[in-house]
Design a protein around this nucleic acid. Structure first.
Length: 1034
RNA sequence: GGGCGAUUAGCUCAGCGGUAGAGCACUUCGUUGACAUCGAAGGGGUCACAAGUUCGAACCUUGUAUCGCCCA
């Protein structure tokens, strides 16, 4: 064997071997009926393996490998998410490099481009996962845009639509002006930025005035003046153009005199200044700004609420790119319509078509419009003014220089404001009133909440459950439509609304005039009818059915599919025109067009747990592996994904998708900082694998996976676990050099076959069994760190540090029986180490497994042990070996204290050795002498002067080193021990002397304390005696 | 502002009712026949602070302080 494991060459070779053997296929190595299924959270198809994936894939791999070795029928289901926005962005960037845009292509051609990209560059992460050693069933790899997955998505949409869980509506949504699509609340990041708050005057209508009175806390008047305006404060002046009201708090006495009156929006052409009402609402904060808030229902979520409550019209001001609208009627006409509404005229159902952007603002960017609003208002003298603070300390200005600074300046507060940004686009999100599709989450949230409340689904750590409740109990409707091209297109078709009102058509027949009238009247404004179905054919019949009710000849029109509404209008009018000439109804067409929007990516990933298994087909895999077992994912997608899977699975499958959710935190660098390219602190898992091997990275991942813990990954740690691998490697190398491994015959010996008689062997067998119990218990409760630590402590701290050393006398100088028993035991122990470590460190263990013997199966498929600690732990062997270890350590320590050269062999004395101590010595004298570098043991009645004392249970040992010893130093050493001992004794005596302790504490605790006290007192006596002896010399 | 959490050795973190642990770092010694990616020995902590519950608190309760994260 080489001195170290060469991960670089071995790991790809081993992975290849596993894959070729089908080691990770669903059901591989299954020897029982129980299944174990984990769904990989599908990485974005654009994704690369980062430390977060590496971490959470390691945990899933550990569990899956462990269960597979236990004979479960396992499936670790891999796959990729089509990631709507992210993927479209990647491909758009590529086009941009060639100077092209998405819109240079047709939708179909652009989607073809994305598929081409996906085939060549997508899914890199899957190759990288193989380097990590992730054992997924790659042949089953799914993709959320696959044909059968698509079927599942469409079926769920249609079913939920039919159940009334999905609806279309005009609501205020988060709009991303870069991607020109709606996004969900979760895709918005609120970031605090430096902003400003402007204060403006809204003049009262009809030159009205009122007494404005401000009072302090005690009710004393601090300001009284006559005002002809109401002052408002805003961070978004550009939205003033769409104001529908000014709101004040109902308790605000300052504005009570003018509530119900009208005021004027101080911007736009003078001739068409709009008047808006002053209303009361609980929303305004009296202490914030002026206490009065302008209400722009179409551009702010809070204002939207106020507007809805108070029936204030909503005026949309911006287009899909976030620029001021340039469509619709000229401003003067639009403003007149709005004015009529404000003064009590009937508002149309939808006021958003009214464009209230003044002509000279149309087409301006949001920020340009803001600057212009501020400039216009200030120029007109309607900005609130304050004394210029620059004048306060401007006494020494030089006359004749710059023009004198103004005495008053506009009141603009610098303020931190929370601004919404798109998590992908990083541009400022605009609340926009648009038609979108929503999941009525209220209707499907119930079972998802109950599942966790009743404990059917367990979220770990437990704190995750509180967060889950909090979010789901306050859940908002989920906006699922996206104005993108890449994704599952919404399966809804629209048609022109031909429902002709009775008063227009008392005869039930449409004559040509009426038909033409239909067109001229603008079916645009009449609305649309829609039907939802899996495909055009299935909605076609619904439209035909609808039309059967409308008057002939239109009831005979044949339903055809066209691209969009414009084409539908065109085709429809052409067919009507033809009809007016021919009077032949058979050529009449009723064109319908499909909703162009696609579904939120999370809508499809919400179906992942069953969509990947072939649903809606009732496949054998679906029957076998659904519902799955555990979901391991980052806390950050608890809402995005976990909650939605819970809702969707319950809505569609009527059951929970898994029974356990394991949440982990975001991975950070060694200092706990978020990793980011700009900070330059990104750790690339592949670089770590190149440097230290995948096993080291995996072990580090497992070791830091404390429940709910902060995850800080550092190269030092990974390096440390590479060293651990080397340690294991060399223990095996030692075994190999000492003929431990028979590589000629298949090794099948069970622990019972060992018939170990020697204490050392019996001890290590017991330690192995204890470790197995610890590892099982840890993995059962997802405490990966405990499993890793137990294995590290066992392999390094027990096997390498002690067992290998203890074995040397028997392997090198022992008789044949001793030697062969020890060889067999060591072979078994090392095999157990490899088996138990395999889920965490699969590569090095598989390599050693196959190097160290002929095997029935690869390690990846080797049976996980089932022996019990209770059957294998030998209490006596345990006591004896711990005594031996204790004696060796104490002797080494004493030697080091008095600076005995490490290599020197020294004599050892003992007094008062009891029978147990004597037998422990007799059984292990060879190895004690070897490891503590002892020449000989002599029983004495009393120690000579200048003897270093080693107190032990069952006897006092001493090193006669009078010539080496520094008496003062040795007394100091012993006194330090006494001090420590004194503290312990104090605690023990304190407890035992307290009568309440004996009565209240459990018996075993009392007994343990008594035994402890006995031992400590014995030790105390030994040390006291030793000090006394030394003082005789000193 | 609301919610969740953290504060333990120089660093990174376990422990979450029986009196303090690991790894790394540090100091000293050491090429003894698996391993210097190593071995041996050692130093280092009023477990953030305060009060309470308890025979007993790092651990439970309540406050305080500081720091994170999520949501407004």
């Amino acid at each position: 064997m080489e001195k170290t494991f060469d991960a670089t060459t071995a790991e790809p070779r081993i992975y290849d071997m596993w894959e070729k053997a089908g080691a990770f296929k669903a059901g591989a190595n299954a020897s029982r009926d129980e299944t174990f299924c984990i769904m990989l959270p599908p990485p974005n198809v654009t994704g690369f393996l980062h430390v977060g994936h590496a971490f959470n894939h390691t945990l899933m791999d550990i569990l899956t490998r462990w269960k597979r070795m236990q004979g479960y029928d396992t499936l670790w289901q891999p796959g990729l998410d089509h990631a709507g926005i992210a993927t479209q962005l990647v491909v758009e960037k590529q086009l941009a490099e060639k100077g092209e845009k998405r819109t240079d292509y047709s939708r179909k051609d652009f989607i073809t481009k994305i598929w081409e990209w996906k085939e060549t560059s997508g899914g890199m992460i899957q190759q990288q996962d193989k380097r990590l050693g992730a054992g997924m069933d790659w042949d089953r790899s799914a993709f959320t845009m696959d044909e059968n997955f698509h079927d599942a998505v469409i079926k769920v949409f249609v079913d939920m639509y039919n159940k009334g869980f999905i609806y279309r509506g005009k609501r205020l949504v988060n709009w991303d002006p870069h991607f020109e699509t709606a996004i969900s609340d979760l895709e918005v990041e609120n970031i605090e930025v430096d902003g400003h708050m402007w204060h403006f005057k809204y003049p009262l209508a009809g030159d009205e005035t009122y007494e404005y009175v401000e009072k302090d806390e005690d009710g004393n008047v601090t300001l009284r003046e006559t005002r002809d305006y109401i002052a408002i404060a805003t961070t978004r002046p550009e939205t003033m153009l769409g104001d529908g009201a000014v709101a004040v708090h109902p308790d605000d006495t300052r504005y009570a005199p003018i509530v119900g009156k009208l005021c004027e929006i101080p911007v736009g052409p003078k001739a068409q200044r709009r008047l808006i009402p002053i209303i009361t609402d609980e929303y305004p904060d009296m202490t914030f700004g002026s206490g009065a808030v302008k209400i722009t229902g179409a551009h702010d979520f809070n204002d939207y609420g106020v507007a809805k409550r108070n029936d204030i019209p909503l005026y949309a001001l911006m287009d899909t790119k976030g620029a001021m609208r340039a469509d619709g009627l000229p401003y003067a006409e639009a403003a007149a319509q709005a004015q009529a509404i404000a003064q009590g005229g009937a508002a149309p159902a939808d006021t958003t078509p009214i464009n209230l952007v003044p002509d000279d603002y149309r087409g301006l960017d949001r920020m340009e419009a803001r600057a212009k609003v501020i400039a216009d208002i200030t120029a007109e003298g309607l900005a609130v003014m304050i004394p210029n603070p620059a004048l306060a300390d401007a006494n020494d200005e030089v006359p004749g220089e710059d023009p004198a600074p103004p005495a008053f300046i506009p009141y603009v507060e610098a303020k931190k404001i929370m601004q919404p940004f798109g998590d992908r686009s990083k541009v400022v999100i605009e609340p926009m009133l648009t038609d979108q599709w929503f999941v009525d989450t209220d209707q499907i949230v119930g079972p998802a909440l109950d599942a966790v409340r009743t404990g059917q689904v367990k979220i770990m750590p437990e704190s995750g459950e509180k967060v889950y409740y909090h979010w789901l109990e306050n859940i908002e409707p989920w906006c699922i439509s996206r104005q993108l091209w890449w994704g599952h297109q919404i399966p809804v078709w629209y048609g022109l609304d031909l429902g002709v009102a009775d008063e227009h058509n008392p005869s039930g027949e449409l004559d040509e005039v009426e038909l033409l009238g239909l067109l001229l009247d603008g079916m645009v404004h009449r609305g649309e009818v829609m039907h939802c179905g899996a495909d055009f054919d299935s909605v076609k019949s619904s439209f035909v059915f609808d039309n059967a009710d409308i008057p002939s000849p239109l009831s005979h029109a044949s339903v055809i599919e066209v691209a969009d509404k414009a084409e539908a209008m065109e085709r429809f009018s052409a067919s009507l025109a033809e009809y007016t000439v021919t009077q032949d109804p058979t050529h009449l067409v009723f064109p319908v067009w499909r909703d162009p929007d696609v579904l939120d990516t999370w809508f499809s990933s919400g179906l992942w747990p069953f969509g990947t298994l072939g649903w809606p087909e009732n496949t054998p895999e679906l029957q076998k592996y659904f519902p799955g077992d555990v979901l391991i994912t980052g806390q950050d997608i608890l809402f995005f994904w976990v909650a939605r899977m819970m809702m969707m699975s319950n809505a569609v499958m009527d059951t929970d998708p898994f029974h356990t959710v394991y949440l982990h935190q975001l991975l950070r660098d060694a200092k706990g900082e978020k990793m980011s390219k700009t900070r330059g602190n990104v750790i690339d898992p592949l670089v770590m694998i190149d440097a230290y091997g995948a096993d080291a990275l995996r072990f580090a991942n497992a070791q830091m996976a404390a429940m709910g813990g902060v995850l800080k990954i550092s190269e030092d740690r990974i390096k440390g676990y590479r060293n651990f691998g080397t340690k294991l490697w060399n223990a095996c190398r030692f075994g190999e050099m000492n003929g431990v491994f028979d590589t000629q015959t298949v090794r099948t010996a069970s622990v019972q076959d060992l018939h170990a008689t020697h204490t050392v062997n019996r001890w290590i067998i017991g330690e192995t069994a204890k470790t197995l119990a610890q590892v099982n218990a840890a993995l059962e409760s997802y405490r990966f760190n405990d499993a890793a630590n137990a294995l590290y402590a066992f392999v390094w701290g027990k096997v390498c540090d002690w067992y290998v050393e203890f074995s040397k006398p028997m392997l090198l100088d022992g008789n044949e029986t001793e030697k062969s028993e020890t060889q067999a035991t060591m072979a078994w122990v090392i095999d157990q180490c490899l088996i138990m470590l395999h889920p965490i460190m699969p590569f090095i263990t598989e390599e050693l497994w196959q190097t160290l013997g002929k095997r029935e199966k690869m390690l990846v498929h080797t049976d996980w042990p089932t022996y019990q600690a209770a059957d294998l732990v030998d209490e006596n062997a345990d006591l004896e070996m711990n005594w031996v270890i204790n004696l060796i350590e104490s002797t080494r320590s004493a030697r080091a204290q008095v600076h005995v050269p490490a290599g020197a062999k020294v004599p050892l004395l003992v007094t008062g050795l009891d029978t147990r101590g004597q037998s422990a010595w007799d059984n292990n004298s060879v190895l004690i002498q070897r490891l503590a570098r002892i020449q000989s043991l002599t029983r004495v009645d009393s120690f000579p002067k200048g003897c270093v004392t080693i107190p032990m249970d069952g006897g006092t040992f001493g090193l006669p080193l009078a010539d080496l010893i520094d008496v003062k130093e040795e007394i100091a050493r012993l006194e330090k021990s006494m001090q420590k001992l004194g503290k312990e004794l104090g605690g023990l005596r304190g407890r035992l002397n307290n009568p309440n302790f004996a009565t209240s504490a459990p018996d075993d605790v009392v007994a343990e304390a008594r035994e402890n006290l006995r031992l400590r007192e014995e030790e105390e006596a030994q040390i006291k005696a030793a000090i006394a002896r030394l003082q005789e010399i000193g």
